[in-house]
């Protein structure tokens, strides 16, 4: 599966901001931290604001703050703001599938879509962030093995 750039950048930004709901960061801060295009991210932040997932904070030290529900928003909720994950077979007469080969290919892509949805629509931002923290702790522990994780 290949997410489009907009979904990927949106996930990065939302997870970054949701990791600390008090935190305010500009699109440039986020882009620099994760090595992605500021220009592209700026547009995405506007979409996320419109969707109510982030809030633009004006004035000095302004930026964006997470304003969604970290325990209920799933990865799919974010992705769907930018793309639909339903596979489409690029064939003429799409939808009129009396052709059994196309019917079979449709059934296979729909099986994949269902599995993709079952993954992305059941991982909340809170779950992804929890796993992110565990990953970071493991990495830190590998770097200095004596450290105790509390």
């Amino acid at each position: 599966m290949k997410l489009n750039k907009a979904s990927l950048f949106a996930l990065i930004a939302v997870l970054e901001l949701a990791s600390d709901t008090e935190k305010q960061l500009s699109a440039t801060d986020i882009a620099q931290k994760h090595g992605i295009s500021t220009h592209h991210l700026a547009k995405i932040m506007r979409n996320l604001t419109y969707a109510g997932l982030v809030q633009a904070v004006r004035g000095a030290g302004g930026g964006y703050r997470f304003s969604g529900n970290v325990r209920r928003t799933t990865l799919l909720d974010v992705i769907q703001l930018f793309e639909t994950l339903e596979s489409e077979l690029d064939v003429p007469n799409w939808g009129n599938n009396s052709d059994p080969i196309i019917g079979e290919l449709q059934s296979i892509t729909s099986e994949i879509d269902n599995l993709t949805k079952a993954v992305l629509d059941t991982i909340t931002l809170a779950t992804a962030l929890k796993n992110t923290r565990i990953r970071a702790e493991l990495k830190a522990n590998q770097a200095s093995p004596g450290r105790v994780i509390t």
Binding site: T74, A118, V119, T122, I123, T124, T127, K130, I134
Partner: peptide, 18 residues
């Protein structure tokens, strides 16, 4: 059940994955 979003989110939240 892959349509059971609640139960799947619950187990995911506890660290289970495919």
């Amino acid at each position: 059940d892959r349509d059971d979003k609640l139960l799947l989110s619950f187990f995911r939240g506890l660290g289970l994955c495919s």
